[in-house]
Design a protein around this nucleic acid. Structure first.
Length: 470
RNA sequence: GGCGGGGUAGCCAAGUGGUAAGGUCGCGGUCUGCAAAACCGCUAUUCGCGGGUUCGAUUCCCGCCCCCGCCUCCA
């Protein structure tokens, strides 16, 4: 079965058809963070979804060229810089750095490029695009000196969100300079400088000002990926107006279809509501790390639910993620031990199956994919329990895991060595057990546990492992 | 009001026109000195509600209900 995704534009599952199927090189543009504060895990749900998408495309042999923009100039960053009384770039720098730290902690692959909105190359490109839009009658400068996109001149405006322009209502969320615009839906391409902008601004044919949010993505996407992009992603809240505007701007300039496949992920909820800065119901990555959760646990927790379904964040969910990962870890340790034993009798040729990849082909059905993984784990554990797994088969499963783990990236952190103190206690305990001194043995196990380690008696002797932080 | 997404066990969550994957939690068992891990068994006569089509619907159709989101700078 072919690779297929739900396309927001058509609202249908469609077979993935890149521009250039023969070369298998595809372009992906993903909307990145606005660096005015630390991103919260709701933001990262989108980035993890995009990471899963990229890794699966790569597993299927595509060479992905991915761009993620960094919005480092907008109302919020300007306000933050002004309040902190520091230059804009100085204000945004630590948030950029925090963002890169966070994606690394969650094992999110870095995009090939992270263009910044304030990069002069892209500001020039934005000005150039706006100029073209004006010359085509698709944009105009209003009395307030800002330049707006004239949505009535772009026939397809509203097609992505499936909005009827006459039905647009103002939610009052954003203050409008409605009096200057021809249509309430016209959006800013270039915002004229005002006093609140301080020293933030660029010279343009329309006077000093700064780019609107939407034009930055159109400029960077077309500059780095060309006139047509294979896949463009973001959160559902970007569908309108942001991505709608991107289509209007990009197609208004190039005259070509901007994006072949639009993919949007649903929100992360907290207590049944969208996690957002404005509601104050958000957690950052450091918040979760402080609670003792690791990056991969958070990665798993955010990844395990299908990207188009809302995901409710709960601590119980974090615990479930931890337990599920422990199950995978134990399985890998057993497989490695079996592979090392060089047993050559037993069941060979167990069915490894391709259901994992096939599930992901189906609009990234991660739940079905993980279901198959866990079924495989039970099946292979059973074989190992019955000593029916030979080394070759164990290695085949390890190779299989290696393959699917290029997508999941859930391998445990490299094991830390057992501290000498713990090792000594384990040794003492083993001696006590030989003497059948169960009381002392249990006491020593308690002490080992208090130090954060767990000792288990297996057929091959005691195994000391780190106790998962509870 | 318009446009989407979702509603399946205590919790999370796949799925199919033919009778419900998987994870987690709980209970019982095997193993173990005891544990742990693993394995085995149990845990939804039922898939938001009401109709309809059908031999048969959770799955298709119609009508409702509930939750979440977007409706002009939120991933």
């Amino acid at each position: 079965m072919a690779l297929r995704f739900f396309n927001t534009y058509s609202r249908q599952i469609e077979e993935f058809q890149p521009r250039d199927p023969a070369k298998r090189k595809i372009s992906v543009y993903t909307c990145g963070p606005t660096v005015y504060s630390r991103a919260h895990i709701g933001n990262f749900r989108a980035y993890i979804f995009e990471d899963l998408l990229q890794r699966h495309l790569e597993l299927r042999g595509y060479k992905v060229h991915r761009v993620m923009n960094i919005t480092d100039v907008d109302d919020k960053t300007i306000r933050g810089a002004r309040e902190a009384k520091i230059p804009l770039s100085k204000f945004t720098a630590p948030f950029k750095q925090a963002f890169f730290e966070d994606i690394e902690t969650m094992r999110i692959k870095r995009a090939d490029e992270f263009p910044a909105a304030t990069d002069p190359r892209y500001v020039d490109r934005m000005i150039e695009m706006i100029d073209t839009l004006i010359s085509r009658g698709l944009a105009y400068q209003a009395d307030d000196k800002s330049v707006y996109f004239r949505i009535n001149k772009f026939a397809d405006y509203g097609k992505l969100a499936h909005f009827d322009l006459t039905q647009l209502q103002s939610t009052g969320r954003v203050k409008h300079d409605e009096y200057d615009k021809e249509h309430i839906g016209d959006f800013a391409l270039w915002k004229a400088w005002d006093e609140e902008d301080g020293d933030v601004g660029w010279e343009s044919p329309w006077g000093r000002g700064r780019p609107g949010w939407h034009i930055e993505c159109s400029a960077m996407a077309t500059a780095l990926l060309g006139d047509q992009i294979d896949i463009h992603c973001g959160g559902v809240d970007n569908i309108f107006p942001h991505h709608e505007a991107e289509i209007a701007q990009s197609e208004g300039v190039t005259g070509k279809k901007f994006v072949r496949h639009w993919l949007h992920c649903a929100h992360l909820l907290v207590d049944g509501q969208k996690m957002s800065k404005s509601l104050g119901n958000f957690y950052t990555l450091p918040n979760l790390l402080e609670k003792g959760y690791t990056g991969r646990e958070i990665r798993y927790a955010l990844m395990r639910v299908h990207y188009r379904a809302p995901l409710n964040f709960t601590w119980k969910g974090m615990e479930e993620a931890r337990q599920a990962l422990t199950r995978i870890d134990e399985w890998l340790m057993r497989l490695r031990a079996t592979a090392a034993k060089k047993i050559d009798k037993g069941k060979t040729g167990m069915q490894l199956g391709t259901q994992f990849e096939e599930a992901l082909d189906d609009d990234l059905n991660i739940s079905a994919a993980l279901g198959f993984l866990f079924e495989s784990i039970r099946e292979t554990n059973r074989a190992m329990d019955q000593n029916e797994m030979d080394a070759a088969t164990a290695n085949a499963w390890l190779d299989w895991w290696k393959r699917i783990n290029t997508v999941l990236d859930l391998e445990p952190e490299t094991e830390v060595g057992v501290p000498a103190e713990v090792a000594q206690l384990a040794k003492d305990r083993e001696n006590a057990r030989r003497e059948k001194n169960w009381k002392r043995s249990d006491q020593l196990r308690e002490r080992i546990s208090a130090l954060g380690w767990e000792v288990r008696d297996t057929k091959d002797g005691p195994k000391v492992t780190p106790r998962s932080a509870a």
